[in-house]
């Protein structure tokens, strides 16, 4: 019984439902808007800014912006992709990402979006920060070198697992993920079956003893670029 809303993305007419965000309506219609922090089962975080689109000419994050009748959305433009590449570059250089050794390679959304947008290496200088690694938990391994501060683990643990294992601490470039314990992850009630252990888009929250169960070459984004599943819905 939801009200239908008609608008356009890059000139293509989309019919969405009242209450949907631009990204939800676009996904349903088979139009891929690049994104990183967004996860369909979690409240939109709006932090990575990769899904920035122009709504009637004004920049908005597609994951937080509700659709409205008659709006004109620009998504696939040269300028926006340039901004997106800058954002992806920023995420790479503020951390320590080493795709060639990373167990998440091929399943990593950061890597996949970078490839899709044509990034082979960041064009800005790396920061080479010192980041924490926490391997105290028997089943889960936490590596902040690869964290992109998307907040998925925070929302999943709080809203789905009802645990609140993760939260952001600090601010500015020092902002990071912390765990709900004085010392380390082993002192929390995080379990491998938790949603929070499942939603990390990069190689920060890793399940131990599962790393290479699926070999390189047979992974999610190895043969088709990220977003292909969404685009296959296009009628």
């Amino acid at each position: 019984m939801s009200e239908q809303i008609t608008f356009t993305i890059d000139g293509i007419e989309i019919k969405g439902k009242a209450g949907q965000t631009i990204i939800e309506a676009a996904d349903e219609a088979g139009i891929y808007i690049p994104r990183l922090c967004y996860h369909p089962e979690l409240a939109p975080h709006g932090s990575c800014r990769v899904c920035t689109v122009l709504v009637n000419g004004k920049p908005q994050s597609a994951c937080t912006q509700p659709i409205a009748e008659g709006i004109t959305v620009e998504n696939n433009t040269k300028e926006l992709d340039e901004h997106r590449r800058n954002l992806i570059d920023m995420l790479f250089i503020e951390g320590n990402h080493f795709c060639m050794f990373c167990e998440k390679s091929g399943n990593c959304e950061l890597q996949a979006v970078a490839y899709r947008l044509g990034i082979l290496a960041p064009k800005y200088p790396y920061f080479f920060p010192k980041k924490d690694v926490d391997s105290t938990h028997p089943d889960i391994f936490l590596d902040l070198n690869r964290c992109i501060l998307c907040g998925r683990c925070v929302s999943a643990s709080r809203d789905i697992d009802g645990k609140g294992v993760f939260e952001f601490v600090g601010r500015s470039i020092e902002k990071k993920i912390a765990v709900n314990a004085e010392a380390s992850l082993k002192d929390t009630n995080l379990k491998q079956a938790d949603k929070a252990a499942d939603v990390c888009p990069v190689g920060t929250i890793n399940k131990k003893r599962t790393a290479f169960a699926i070999p390189i070459g047979k992974r999610l984004y190895d043969s088709k670029p990220i977003g292909s599943d969404i685009e296959s819905r296009r009628k």
Binding site: C48, I148, S172
Partner: peptide, 11 residues
């Protein structure tokens, strides 16, 4: 910067 979004935090 509060550090929430990429461009302001890193840019």
């Amino acid at each position: 910067s509060c550090g929430y979004c990429t461009p302001c935090r890193v840019g």
